[in-house]
Amino acid sequence: MWDLPTRLFHWALVASVVALVVSGQIGGNAIDWHAKLGVAVAALLLFRLVWGLVGGRWSRFTSFIYSPLTTLRYLRGQSTPHAEVGHNPLGALSVFALLAVLLVQVGSGLIIDDEIAFVGPLNAWAPAEWVSWASNWHRESGKLLLIGLVVLHVAAIAFHAHVKRHNLVKPMFTGDKALPVGTPASRDDIVTRGLALLLLAACAVAGVWLWQLGYANAM
């Protein structure tokens, strides 16, 4: 069901976000790692945005964009087989919310100025009022909102596992899930994996460029 690039992205993002929160809380010398991880997350998000357009069938955003009516029916227990294949309507909302908050959090980190030890790589091109807002958001509201969404996401996974008896974690490791007969599979072969690798490499290059840009501005 889930293609390999999507699964690797998911777990790389999980590890990176956990490390970001920990390093941000520690502060001090850990901020350098926090900044590097932030750039890595920026590259991962860029990859996911593009992969959401060209990736495997169930990794594409079009496969889990639901209308308000479909979401309402799902809440009433009137689910369709399609809604149980990949992300269900509530899971889709969670994914889009997490991606949006992460994008804002990463974007604010690119222009932040903590007035102590770190200046974002794009800080020099941002208006002073943007920098002020981004600095406050990144350290306070944005961080709390992100942690809150992650907690809700984990709680939803636990609810599905223990109440609805749906294991949502295993398919993200194996890529396999019991589905209704006739459900189209995601393409996941050497060609799509090669495309994903090239795309990830391009996103990594963009991330390195951002890091070097910040280093040049600090000189």
Rank of each mutant, 00 (worst) to 15 (best):
V17Q: 07
L198H: 03
G194M: 09
D189H: 05
A124Y: 08
L93W: 09
L103K: 02
V95C: 10
D114R: 05
G214K: 00
P68M: 08
I65W: 12
T80R: 12
G142V: 04
A124T: 12
P5K: 01
P184W: 15
T174N: 12
G207R: 00
V150D: 07
A40H: 00
F118C: 02
W33G: 01
L200V: 05
V104E: 06
L90V: 14
L8P: 04
L195G: 02
A178T: 14
H87A: 10
R76C: 06
T192V: 11
P5E: 02
G86I: 07
L72M: 08
R165Y: 14
A124Q: 10
V208S: 02
S67P: 04
D176S: 13
L4P: 01
M1I: 14
H34Y: 00
W211S: 05
L46T: 12
L110K: 03
V131T: 14
A155C: 11
R57W: 09
H162T: 15
G27Y: 07
L98H: 01
V50F: 02
F96P: 04
D113Q: 10
V41G: 02
Y74I: 08
A196E: 01
W11N: 08
S16G: 12
G109P: 07
V163Y: 10
S16H: 03
R193K: 13
L195F: 12
R165N: 13
A30F: 04
Q25Y: 10
N29I: 07
W133C: 06
T6L: 13
F159E: 10
N167V: 05
F173K: 06
L37T: 03
V17P: 06
P5Y: 00
A97V: 09
V101R: 01
G38V: 00
L149G: 04
V131R: 15
P180K: 12
V17C: 06
